[in-house]
Design a protein around this nucleic acid. Structure first.
Length: 884
RNA sequence: GGGCGAUUGGCUCAGAUGGUUAGAGCGCUGCCUUCACACGGCAGAGGUCACAGGUUCGAGUCCUGUAUCGCCCACCA
């Protein structure tokens, strides 16, 4: 712990005309050179504060949202550093996953085709934005191999990372830039693969053939956490099934008539008397004549539609529930590309020529086309009762997708997350309670999510740029993979790419790949969250550097945004619970969003994104940080350029007030008055007593992660300090009441300045460092956080009331001068203050300061019930006042 | 459908465990430039604290309900 008191130099020089320009570049370079923010690896765990910095998605754009939330974290990091902690503050880059793939596709106009061989001579194409229209046409969708594609991903993300690092450095994040990682780098891949292998060993990961939500454009499975609902137009189609015995029509209503060929049953509520007689009997579907059973299930809503629904495999998630719980057969017709399979399904073929013919009309069509056609067919067959009734209803989409998700059956990897296991779910809910949430109400979202899980975590993705599953399958004599006998990578070999590396142990040779009797690599990659969920383990070098890990894990803080509680925060908790039987961190600080001035969430698509670098250049980093730090934890905040101006003004004020406080005594080489016993004057002591209270408040606020409160209190004090205290003390500090009174003022000014600079340092790192450098050694950012008790000692018998009444009296004098339209320098012949006795006594102790600041010849104090302040200005002179 | 949060002067927001005339800043108005600061300073005007009840000696602050906005979650045929 570095608790040494700040050490001012013996003499110092204050710049004549201090300014803010260029501070970012100058101090950024100095901090880098001097390792100001370097993590001290020798610190014990108890003296370390470790932060699980969110790795920004580098393929995204830089926006003020980054500036906002990263500044919040930085203020907390700086606070703990000043409290003497060794702050472990790494930076990661999230370059793994779909956003990068899409960006590379668009940026270079290429498509990944995994069937193509690697082309070592492939050159990085020019960005499509630089191509002429003719060139664009020619280059459109150039197909390249997976490995070439991944090289492009790496190339582009490296560029993106530079831009992010530049922004973060200009912003003044006190990250240790020696501690960076990327979610696709070797260590991340090792950690992700190792954690997965461990999950597999402990049966926390498993493979299953099951219905999954499927994006037909990306041709990949999608996890529950990546879903979103979108309102879509649809229509209820009223369609008759026919009862087996008497051919009576049973009407169902559906928004997806095209799934009639995939129907496996009808279902109604067990208490629904209308349908009770049908339970256990069979009906035939229209057009296809396929016989299906009528079943009972409590999820069927008698109020909805006709009260009886058709179950298809699969139209929506409810279908999956019914299918599972009623143990229905699987009859899927939609394939991975979102089209109806071309081959006629057997259960339809078995139903006769009419069915065959009807299916032929749908085969190969996409969902929309098939729906249009089947409605025509139903109408022709007289199997559509009335016109479809338009409706809007929520439809599930992949959050990055453009078409509704389909549900298809496929083989995927899962990690247990409590979605199917009440014991694990309860344990994870308990972890949520164990974690300290800032602000606390954010935990509700975690609880909501965990309680709403309806399955385990699907972690496999049928994509290219990501961490591969570290395993292979033997192929049988027919060349089919033996999924029940995967060959696992050994931990020492990680990271591996099963599509190019061989299984361990020399059991196979390269020419046996994809040959009957040989082997094949698992083709899938992990969900990007499967890697991101391990950021604590990646950053702290789990199983890679035992010493570092022991000093930094479990971490102290996870800062993040609220919309990814269900994904990032939850999945990280799951992995740590499974691997370490602990929380990954003790605290989480949830930041809000930046809204545009119309209170809409800022987003690229809306075109209202503000680019942060322009503002950093125009107003300075401290001003931008000031705005960001004013946003309360967890609260959405509107972007307000006006706040940047205020922040800049605050920074400038700090320069000028410091110049005054440090420039007293005149000339350069001003003498240091660093002896607290010199503070004898009542006004000085009163101010220090207030300052001690401020330090206590700011400390409590920071300990509760309420940086915004700490800033607000410090700022409010500082403006009072400048407007009232500096004016009241100015004359005396210059020597107006003798040397000892002047030294008291100077010592108090230096002590308060030192304190205020340190209180502001987490928010305004550049200007505080600049001022600090005028008179102190070392960096303010490694100086100890102010100590309230030390200030209390210096304040001694200081009475805050004395400061308050003095400021009031000075205010009354200023008001009188303003109302008389006189300069504040205008002399006053007499001030009469009437007030209650304690206030008059308090004012009496500081009367000389008030008199001099008022430029008053005389101040008369009277005790009285009716408080008043009467100001008598000097008359208009024939000549300028002599002593003004 | 369930839940969380918000609602304070024209704007952006403070108002921890209920207690004297509800605070800031921006904007607006007026005044003031040698001696820290015109990238300033001083002062002024401006609020029935969303609404309706209730608890209390006393409510912006607690309780109940209502409205509006935002968000999270949900099995939405």
């Amino acid at each position: 712990m570095s608790t040494a008191a700040p050490t001012p130099r013996d003499t110092w020089t204050v710049p004549e005309k201090p300014g803010l320009d260029g501070l970012e570049g100058r101090w950024g370079a100095t901090w880098q050179d001097q390792g100001t923010y370097r993590f001290d690896r020798s610190a014990e765990r108890a003296d370390v504060y470790s932060i699980d910095t969110p790795p920004p998605t580098v393929s995204g754009s830089l926006h003020v949202g980054h500036v906002f939330s990263y500044t919040h974290t930085d203020t907390i990091a700086r606070y703990h550093r000043m409290r003497g902690k060794a702050v472990f503050y790494p930076m990661g880059w999230d370059d793994n996953g779909l956003p990068t793939e899409r960006r590379v596709q668009n940026y270079y106009g290429v498509q990944c085709d995994p069937t193509l061989p690697y082309d070592p001579a492939f050159e990085i194409p020019r960005p499509t934005s630089e191509l002429s229209a003719a060139e664009k046409k020619k280059h459109r969708d150039q197909h390249i191999s997976r490995r070439n594609f991944i090289e492009l991903c790496n190339h582009l993300t490296a560029e993106d990372e530079k831009a992010f690092e530049h922004l973060f450095r200009v912003l003044g994040l006190s990250v240790d830039w020696g501690l960076t990682y990327a979610t696709i780098d070797d260590r991340s891949r090792r950690v992700a693969q190792r954690a997965f292998l461990r999950n597999l060993e402990r049966d926390e990961a498993y493979q299953a053939e099951a219905p999954v939500l499927w994006d037909i454009d990306f041709r990949s499975a999608v996890a529950q956490a990546e879903l979103e609902d979108r309102e879509r137009e649809g229509a209820y189609h009223r369609v008759p099934f026919t009862r087996a015995g008497d051919g009576e029509p049973i009407f169902i209503e559906t928004t997806r008539p095209e799934l009639i060929p995939a129907c496996v049953a009808l279902v109604a509520h067990p208490d629904d008397e209308r349908y009770q007689p049908l339970f256990g009997t069979t009906v035939r579907s229209p057009l296809f004549g396929v016989e299906v059973e009528v079943r009972a299930h409590t999820l069927a809503d008698p109020e909805k539609g006709s009260g009886i629904a058709m179950i298809c495999t699969f139209g929506d998630i409810t279908d999956v529930t019914w299918w599972r719980e009623l143990q229905l057969p699987t009859r899927s017709v939609i394939t991975e590309n979102g089209r109806f399979q071309t081959e006629t399904p057997e259960w339809i073929a078995a139903s006769g020529d009419g069915a065959l013919e009807a299916y032929g009309e749908l085969a190969g069509k996409n969902v929309k086309q098939a729906q249009r056609r089947i409605v025509e067919l139903l109408r022709e067959a007289g199997a559509l009762d009335g016109d479809p009734k338009p409706t809007t209803h929520p439809v599930k989409f992949y959050e990055k997708g453009e078409n509704p998700l389909e549900i298809i059956t496929s083989r995927q990897w899962y990690i247990r997350n409590g979605g199917r296991d009440a014991g694990l779910r309860d344990a994870l809910l308990e972890r949520g309670r164990e974690l300290h949430w800032h602000p606390p109400h954010m935990r509700v979202r975690y609880d909501n999510w965990v309680n709403g899980l309806n399955g385990d975590w699907l972690v496999s993705r049928q994509r290219f740029f990501g961490v591969p599953f570290p395993l292979w399958y033997p192929l049988d004599d027919e060349g089919l993979p033996r999924y029940d006998a995967p060959i696992l990578a050994t931990e020492a070999d990680l990271p591996v790419d099963p599509s190019s590396d061989l299984p361990p142990g020399g059991a196979f040779t390269a020419d046996q790949r994809d040959q009957p009797g040989g082997f094949t690599g698992d083709p899938d990659i992990m969900d990007t969250w499967a890697t991101s969920s391990l950021t604590p383990q990646i950053a702290t070098a789990w199983e890679e550097d035992a010493d570092l890990f022991a000093r930094t894990f479990p971490m102290d803080l996870r800062p993040q945004a609220h919309e990814i509680i269900r994904t990032w925060l939850f999945s990280t908790t799951v992995r740590s619970h499974l691997e370490h039987d602990s929380l990954p961190w003790r605290n989480t600080a949830i930041s809000g969003w930046v809204l545009d001035p119309d209170r809409k969430k800022m987003s690229k698509s809306k075109g209202n994104v503000v680019t942060p670098l322009e503002f950093l250049e125009q107003y300075g980093a401290d001003a931008v940080r000031y705005w960001a730090a004013s946003g309360r934890p967890g609260t959405d905040t509107a972007f307000d350029e006006g706040q940047l101006k205020i922040g800049r003004r605050l920074a400038i004020k700090l320069l000028n007030a410091s110049r005054f406080a440090l420039g007293l005594g005149g000339g350069d080489g001003a003498a240091q008055v660093n002896d607290l016993s010199l503070v004898t004057e009542p006004l000085d002591r009163a101010m220090l007593a207030d300052l001690a209270t401020l330090v206590e408040d700011a400390t409590v606020a920071f300990d509760g992660y309420d940086y915004a409160r700490a800033l607000e209190r410090t700022e409010a004090f500082f403006w009072q300090f400048c407007d009232q205290y500096l004016e009241l003390v100015k004359s005396r500090a210059y020597g107006g009441q003798g040397d000892e009174a002047a030294w008291s003022a100077q010592a108090a000014l230096q002590l308060s300045l030192s304190t205020l600079l340190r209180l502001f340092a987490p928010f305004l790192p550049f200007v505080t460092e600049e001022v600090w450098s005028w008179w102190q050694q070392d960096s303010v950012h490694n100086a100890p956080w102010p100590d309230a008790s030390e200030l209390r000692d210096a304040a001694a018998d200081g009475d805050p009331q004395a400061f308050a009444v003095a400021a009031e009296a000075l205010g009354a004098v200023r008001r009188a001068k303003t109302e008389a339209k006189r300069s504040l320098k205008w002399p006053v012949t007499k001030v009469v203050v009437v007030d209650h006795e304690p206030r008059i006594k308090a004012l009496g102790r500081v009367i000389e300061d008030v008199r001099e600041a008022s430029i008053a010849a005389e101040i008369v104090l009277e005790v009285g019930a009716e408080a008043s302040i009467t100001v008598e200005l000097a008359p208009e002179p024939d000549e300028p006042p002599a002593d003004a």
